[in-house]
Amino acid sequence: MVDSKKDKRQKREEYRAALHQDDTTELPRKKFYRQRAHANPFSDHQLIYPPSPDQMDWSLMYPAYVVEDDKPADSEDTAMAAPGAETEAQSSDELVSSTEPKRLSKEVEVADIGCGFGGLLIALAPVMPDTLILGLEIRVSVTQYVVDRIKALRAQNELAPESNPNSYNNIACLRANTMKFLPNFFRKFQLSRIFICFPDPHFKARKHKQRIVSPTLNSEYAYALRPGGIVYTITDVPDLHHWMVQHFDAHRSFERVSDEDQNADPCVAIMRTETEEGKKVERHSGQKYVACFRRLEDPPFEEAEAEAEAEKKVEE
């Protein structure tokens, strides 16, 4: 038993090392990246995240969108970083640069929170070819799988653009605990879409606080989303669906998107069919529950009555 475990780990390491050695176009195999499905969002993981969005270096993740700087000192680095340097981005400290990070021609606008093995990212990439999409995943191996997968897809496109027309330059994946660190990556109103697909249901009542949707976390989603932006949720657990609907409905920064609008949104169809979990649910002939919520404009700032009155008096 112990031996076979060792073997497994060894095989895993060998496999990944081989994959990283050459610029392979071979897609990674999931079996070498499996990981326990749950992560404790409250523990202090060995996470890399920028102190603030301004210090986030996106250039390694979206090299095709790097703006060649006018500053001559930086241009060399940019050129070096551009081709295929994204491989080890997840595990290196370079992700968070101490100096001014290189700028991209556009900002990340779509976030897939808990992207898992990246099915949604890869399906969305050709649908929104000019939008930067980011998958966020808390599990190390799973994140690495998505990174390797994107890398292979990009390489395939480079080698044979005819048969692989999608460049996949607009998608990337990074390891993060979004429950804690979403504001470290995204500025206020930066995102237009947030996907929350098949989140960990946390069945036990005492684990409900670990759910990705809660009254207080919804405020953070509202912060990162621009008014008019959409939160997409899907789950196969009816009670979790009710939980999410209840909490977004109750949050005054959100309104439920009508069924009509929801069904007209191409992202909803992709979310239903293309996520890895979505496929799995289909195999088990389970139910899928979708709910989308629109980020509303913030109301005018409610000012303290006493002082507002005092101001009025001054005006009079």
């Binding site: 206020k188 912060y223 920064s253 409610e302 303290a304």
Partner: peptide, 18 residues
């Protein structure tokens, strides 16, 4: 965050840098 009881769910910003 906003300070009034009915608007405290609105995050105005963060001071990030620590």
């Amino acid at each position: 965050s906003r300070g009034s009881m009915s608007q405290a769910h609105i995050i105005e910003g963060f001071c990030l840098g620590h």
